[in-house]
Simulated assay, not measured.
Amino acid sequence: MAHIDLFFSTISPYAYLAGNRAEEVAAKHGATITYKPLDIMALFARTGGTPPKDRHPSRIEYRALDLVRQAALQGLPFNLQPAHWPTNAAPSSYAFIAAQNAGGGDLGKLMAAFCRSVWADEKDIAEDAVVRACLQEAGFDPALADSGLLVGAETYAANLEEAVDKGVFGSPFYVTDTGQRFWGQDRIDDLDAHLSGKV
């Protein structure tokens, strides 16, 4: 059975634009997914990336055009300048890690809920009430927002180190058990082709 490590940030617009397509591809091929939330700004610093606000104007302009275009193609509501971005991704990430450890809900739906809260719903995922609502929406106990904080912090840091070791430098980033890497929501079709044995 194939396996995918999905590295992502809960504040990543491209993780939001991925929707549930990676989960659909995994289900199609009987593959499993382990979700690896991480600190995207720390990842940029470690891998030669630049935070969006510090990029050259031409890159900032292209990012704005591309995000709006990709959202339209996916039929997703999207706010290019959300009220709560960037925000502290740690609380939502710790809750996500606790949910993954607890089981019982839909992790793909949870990732989507956090990302949608930022990029479409004008909510701050650093706030406890928002984290709890996302957990509940995805079928998890909202109380997970209060549990496993130490484990969450340790795993969050470990995910960053693992990402750097595996050549990950953005979000979302898909790494298969065969070492194939796919960066971005626009490479999910390539992931599908790989799992089909075409590439």
Rank of each mutant, 00 (worst) to 15 (best):
K123A: 15
S12Y: 10
E24A: 15
F7K: 03
R187F: 08
I40C: 00
W119N: 06
I40G: 00
A15L: 10
F169E: 08
A163H: 09
A64K: 12
P86N: 10
A112K: 13
A89H: 05
V199Y: 00
V130D: 06
M111V: 11
Q81K: 12
E162M: 08
W183D: 02
T47G: 01
S147P: 00
T50S: 06
D190C: 08
R59D: 12
D128C: 06
P57V: 05
A99F: 05
I60P: 01
D165G: 10
A2R: 11
G108Q: 10
D39L: 11
F7H: 02
K109G: 09
N101W: 01
A2K: 11
G105K: 03
D146C: 00
E61P: 03
W119D: 05
G139Y: 06
A45L: 07
Q136H: 09
D121Q: 12
E122Q: 15
G152K: 04
N79W: 00
G184C: 11
G49L: 05
V151G: 04
F173D: 01
V151E: 14
Y156W: 15
A72C: 01
A143D: 14
I11D: 02
R132E: 13
H84G: 01
S147R: 15
P82R: 10
A158D: 15
K53L: 01
G148L: 11
A42I: 07
E161I: 05
L135H: 05
R55E: 07
P77F: 08
G103S: 06
A126D: 04
A72S: 12
A89R: 04
D5I: 01
G167N: 12
I11M: 03
K123G: 07
D66F: 13
G108E: 09
F8R: 03
Y156R: 08
V175M: 07
P51V: 08
V68P: 00
Q100W: 07
G179W: 04
L191P: 10
G152E: 08
L80M: 07
K36H: 15
D128K: 15
A145Y: 05
D54P: 00
Y16H: 10
Y62N: 12
A26Y: 03
I40T: 02
D186S: 10
P52K: 03
D177R: 09
A64D: 14
I4P: 02
V164Y: 03
G49K: 06
I60T: 09
G148M: 11
V25W: 03
D66P: 12
L65I: 14
N159A: 11
G48Y: 05
A113N: 09
D106E: 11
D121W: 05
L67E: 13
G104T: 07
E23W: 07
L144H: 09
F114A: 01
P51M: 06
D54S: 10
A22K: 01
F173Q: 01
G108S: 14
F78M: 00
A2V: 04
L73E: 14
D177P: 08
A90V: 14
G105H: 04
A113P: 02
P51R: 08
